[in-house]
Amino acid sequence: MKKNLLLILLLFVSILSFSQELHDIKGVVMNDANDKILENVNIVNLNQVKGTTTNDKGEFALKAAVNDTLYFSYLGFKSLRVRVTNDWLRFGDIKVKMTELGIALEEVVVKPVQLTGYVEIDAKLIPVYDNYRYRISGLSTGYEGGSNQPGAVSKVLSSIFNPADFLYNVFGKRPQQMRKMRKMKEDDEIRNLLQSKFDRETLMAVLQLERVDIDEILNKCNYSKDFIRTANDLQILDAISGCYEEYKILNRDK
């Protein structure tokens, strides 16, 4: 009886270790409508926080363990999550098909500034953007201010001396997400991916946050609405990470 229990235990441990082992996952990404290959599709392992892109043949290779989730994103196509299974490892390459989306581009109206040629008049016509940043001695980065961020100085001071830090409320019970964020900053493939994206989808998928959560974090970090609206995903990642590290230092003894 004891021998049987020992064998079952060893079998269970071996299965568990196999499922956690990283394997080379390969496949090809195609358009579901016509089976054409898709080049430069962004792929992120949400568990291991590693990324890659498809080559000119639609092929990709990525390290993953059984039950890891791969996140596929491509401009004009619906993002897709695919779980790595034992069958994938057993049968090798698989075909991942993505569904195309209809994208309606909003009309952009460009209003040129009509200059008169007189410096005194033209200086008043040219718009001035005052979304500048405040810097505090001891902090490596500053805080944005300007018309879209009223009371920026008071908000900076209140955030520094506030022991009930919003970021700790968000991430305090999810240290794993902060580790994932650090991994994202270290992976060149993911950084290149985030630098070209503005939809926050990859950030939301990896950090398991909603868009409103990301906006609220940046608001609490005193970033302006202009920055939140126009920054690419890499800038957003660096902003959240930098703000969290600053708060961690400032609240170390609290």
Score class of each variant (00 low, 15 high):
Lys173Tyr: 01
Thr99Lys: 08
Ile217Tyr: 00
Tyr118Ile: 14
Ala152Arg: 05
Ala164Cys: 05
Gln177Pro: 02
Val206Ile: 06
Met204Ala: 13
Ile214Cys: 04
Val110Trp: 12
Gly117Ser: 08
Phe91Trp: 12
Asp199Ala: 14
Arg133Tyr: 11
Leu207Met: 07
Asp93Gly: 06
Asp187His: 01
Asp213Leu: 05
Gln114Asp: 12
Pro150Val: 07
Ser147Val: 15
Gly102Leu: 13
Thr202Gly: 02
Asp188Ala: 13
Leu209Gln: 04
Tyr223Asn: 06
Glu186Pro: 02
Glu186Tyr: 00
Arg211Glu: 12
Gly138Ala: 15
Lys180Leu: 01
Ala164Ile: 03
Glu210His: 13
Glu144Val: 07
Asn148Glu: 11
Ser196Cys: 07
Asn162Glu: 07
Ile190Trp: 00
Leu101Asn: 08
Leu89Tyr: 05
Val153Arg: 13
Leu194Asp: 00
Tyr134Ile: 13
Gln195Trp: 04
Leu194Glu: 03
Val108Arg: 14
Leu115Ala: 08
Pro150Ala: 09
Lys220Gly: 11
Val206Thr: 00
Asp233Tyr: 03
Ile121Thr: 10
Asn222Ala: 11
Tyr143His: 15
Asn162Gly: 05
Cys221Val: 07
Phe198Ser: 12
Leu207His: 02
Arg211Cys: 07
Arg200Leu: 14
Lys173Pro: 02
Lys183Tyr: 02
Arg200His: 06
Gly138Ile: 09
Arg211Asn: 14
Arg133Glu: 09
Glu210Arg: 11
Lys197Trp: 03
Met184Pro: 02
Lys220Gln: 15
Gly151Ile: 04
Asn148Met: 12
Leu157Gly: 06
Gly92Leu: 12
Arg174Ile: 01
Asp233Asn: 06
Lys180Glu: 03
Val170Gly: 01
Asn169His: 06
Pro163Ser: 14
Glu201Gln: 10
Lys124Leu: 15
Glu186His: 01
Arg135Ser: 12
Arg182Met: 07
Pro175Phe: 00
Met178Pro: 00
Ile136Ala: 15
Val212Lys: 10
Glu144Ser: 09
Ala104Glu: 15
Lys111Asn: 10
Gly145Leu: 05
Val170Tyr: 00
Lys180Thr: 03
Phe227Gln: 02
Phe91Ala: 11
Gln114Phe: 11
Leu167Ser: 02
Lys124Asn: 10
Ile228Val: 09
Val206Asp: 01
Tyr223Phe: 15
Lys225Asp: 06
Lys197Met: 04
Gln176Phe: 02
Leu157Thr: 08
Asn219Ile: 08
Ile214Ala: 03
Arg90Leu: 14
Met204Thr: 11
Lys124His: 13
Val96Lys: 05
Arg211Ile: 12
Val153Ser: 09
Glu120Pro: 01
Asp233Ile: 03
Asp213Ser: 09
Arg90Tyr: 13
Lys185Trp: 06
Phe91Tyr: 12
Tyr223Ala: 05
Pro175Ser: 08
Gly146Met: 10
Asp130Thr: 12
Val109Phe: 07
Gly138Gln: 13
Lys185Arg: 13
Arg135Ile: 09
Ala205Phe: 12
Glu189Asp: 11
Leu105Gly: 13
